[in-house]
Structure formats: C-alpha cells, structure tokens
C-alpha cells in the first residue's frame, strides 16, 4: 500500500490538548470502525517520521476524522496540533487493521474500555453503531484524568438506549461525582463492565501500561483471554 494524499478540510479543537483533523483522502476505499491510519511527515532535509492515528469518524461518513492528542516532546503531534491548517496536504497510509475492529454485523454485547485518547477508535465504533441502527448492547468505560480531557463529547452525548457510557476520573472528578475514581483495578472493572457470563467482545485501548493492567485484571475476573482485543499506543514519558 502506498502513501496517499490527504487534504485537511477542517481542523478544530477537540479538548484543551487535542485537535480533530478532518481529511479528504485521495482514493479512500472506506474503513471499518477501529482501524487506524499512518501519517508521515517529511522534513526539508528528507528526514521522515510516521505515527499511527485511530480513525474517529464512522465508516458511513464521507470524510476521515482523526483526533490528535498533544504529547510533550513529541516529533509529530506538535506539528499536527499547532501548524497544520485547512488546505494543507498530508501523506497518509490506510486504512490499516484487521484485528481491533467492530462491525454492526458482529452484534453484541460489546465492552469498550478506554484510557485517555484510547477512546478515539471507540468514537468510530459508537457512531457506526448509531448510524447503522444497531441494537447490539455496548458499554464504554472511559478512564480519563480530568473532566476537561474528555474527547468525543458530540458522539458520546447522543448514543442510543442500547449504549451505556461510564466515566472514571483518576485525578479530579466533577463536583458531586458519585461514579468511579482512581485507577481501573479489578474492583472497578467488576462493577462497571459486562461480566464474563455475558461473553462480551471486549476492546481495550490506551497507554501500554493501562491496557496491560486492564487486560490482566479482566482475565483475573474470568474473561476469556481471546475475547479481549487490545491496542497500545505507548507509555507517557
């Protein structure tokens, strides 16, 4: 697969530290919710760097949206967040991924567990679920540090009755918050995710340490390891 030309059609803030890039990609073949793309940047001296970004938009939507979370000392994200403007052209390879994907035809129940910007592929899955009119039961447990870090408020605010979204705050919670706080340990997971008896398809995405801790705790709780799909985006420095 070669690199394609992607024209930036819009760029807008998604949270205090993240932007949404809306791209029109030459020859785009469509994607499956959960897939990602690689973006490549080339410096004037020919140095190149590529990073993977999950697709935030649903397959039913004509343009491809990515959400880029800023990373201190990063090579690629500062440029994408601060410098890219509408009309700019990026190099993109994708869609990629045949493992960490969900289609409405796969049905439910589906358990999604996100750490921070690991929620992005789940925004695609939830929007796909809504636009497909799926009646699959879906639960999202979304762990984030602070309320202002939330991504995807548009999608998360209009999920259907078969979708349940639970937030868990590790650093600061909204005033009067009664829901989960702190890390997602086995106790929090036992209370807030589909139990093993329901045989959910489980997807976990976030920082590497988060994903491995959550997946390990799920296995302890009796979930079948092969029912858990994971995607790691690295550990914060």
């Amino acid at each position: 697969m070669s690199w394609a030309r992607a024209v930036v059609r819009a760029t807008c803030p998604e949270s205090a530290g993240a932007v949404r890039l809306v791209l029109e990609v030459d020859g785009w073949s469509g994607h499956v919710a959960g897939q990602h793309v690689d973006l490549r940047l080339t410096a004037e001296d020919g140095y190149t760097a590529w990073r993977s970004y999950s697709i935030a938009s649903a397959p039913q939507q004509p343009l491809v949206s990515l959400v880029v979370q800023g990373v201190d000392g990063g090579e690629v994200s500062p440029y994408l967040i601060s410098d890219v403007q509408e009309g700019d052209v990026l190099e993109l390879r994708g869609p990629i991924g045949g493992h960490f994907v969900w289609r409405a035809a796969l049905g439910g129940p589906v358990q999604l567990i996100a750490g921070g910007s690991g929620v992005v592929p789940f925004l695609s899955m939830l929007e796909h679920h809504r636009l497909a009119g799926s009646d699959a039961e879906v639960r999202l447990l979304y762990a984030l540090r602070n309320p202002q870090d939330v991504l995807g408020t548009g999608v998360l605010g209009q999920v259907g009755p078969r979708v349940q979204v639970t937030y868990a705050y590790s650093r600061s919670a909204p005033p009067g918050w009664q829901g989960p706080t702190g890390r997602l340990d086995a106790g929090v997971l036992a209370e807030h995710v589909c139990g093993p008896a329901a045989a959910p398809q489980t997807f976990v995405c976030g920082p590497t340490g988060f994903v491995e801790a959550v997946a390990g705790a799920l296995v302890q709780l009796g979930h079948v390891p092969t029912s858990i799909k994971t995607e790691r985006y690295g550990d914060a420095a």
């Binding site: 590529w50 201190d72 090579e75 045949g98 910007s117 914060a236 420095a237």
Partner: peptide, 28 residues
C-alpha cells in the same frame, strides 16, 4: 489511539501492520 510520540515507545503489532504493507499485500 494517538500513538505516543516520544523516544521510548512500546506499542503493539497493530502499529506494525502499516509498514508491513510495504512488503505484503494483505493486512497482517
């Protein structure tokens, strides 16, 4: 996923699937 961007990245094979498309014709 916004893949972490700093010099110590331990990711998973999902992020290898793109580069492997330089050599293989299917997503692995």
């Amino acid at each position: 996923m916004t893949s972490i961007d700093t010099p110590d990245r331990r990711l998973d094979g999902n992020a290898l699937a793109g580069p492997l498309l330089e050599l293989f014709t299917i997503d692995l």
